Simulated assay, not measured.
Amino acid sequence: MAYGSAADAVDEYLCLGESTALSCLKHFTEAIISLFGDEYLRRPTAVDLQQLLDVGESRGFPRMIGSIDCMHWVWKNCPTAWKGQYTRGSGKPTIVLEAVASHDLWIWHAFFEPPDRAPKVKYYVNGNQYRYAYYLTDGIYPKWATFVQSIPLPQDLKTRCFAKHQESVRKDVERAFGVLQARFAIVKNPALIWDKQKIGNIMRACIILHNMIVENERDHYNLVDTTEFEQGDLTRCSQVDMSFSTDLASNIGNMIGIRNEIRDRKTHDLLQADLLEHMWHKFGHLEDY
Rank of each mutant, 00 (worst) to 15 (best):
E12N: 10
E12I: 13
Y13K: 10
C15L: 14
S19W: 04
A21C: 11
L22T: 07
L22W: 06
L25I: 15
K26R: 08
K26M: 03
H27C: 06
F28G: 13
A31F: 04
I32G: 02
I32R: 03
I33V: 12
I33E: 03
F36Y: 12
F36H: 07
G37M: 06
D38W: 09
E39K: 07
Y40I: 05
L41C: 02
L41W: 05
R42A: 12
R43S: 08
R43T: 13
P44H: 01
T45K: 04
A46V: 13
A46Y: 15
D48T: 02
L49P: 00
L49G: 03
Q50S: 10
Q51S: 15
Q51W: 08
L52T: 04
S58W: 06
G60P: 02
G60Q: 06
F61A: 06
F61N: 05
R63A: 14
G66W: 01
G66Y: 00
S67M: 01
I68N: 02
I68M: 05
C70A: 12
M71N: 11
H72T: 05
H72F: 09
W73D: 07
W73N: 06
W73A: 02
V74H: 15
V74C: 15
W75H: 02
C78T: 03
P79C: 07
P79F: 10
T80E: 15
A81I: 14
A81F: 15
W82A: 11
K83Q: 10
G84Q: 12
G84H: 11
Q85W: 10
Y86S: 03
T87S: 13
T87N: 09
G89W: 12
S90G: 08
S90C: 14
S90T: 04
S90Q: 13
S90V: 11
K92V: 11
K92H: 15
I95W: 01
I95E: 08
I95Q: 14
V96S: 11
V96R: 02
V96G: 09
L97E: 06
L97W: 02
E98I: 11
A99C: 01
A99I: 09
A99P: 01
V100G: 07
V100P: 01
A101D: 04
S102A: 00
H103Q: 03
W106Y: 04
W106N: 05
W106T: 03
W108T: 00
W108D: 03
H109A: 10
A110V: 10
F112L: 12
F112P: 08
E113H: 14
E113S: 12
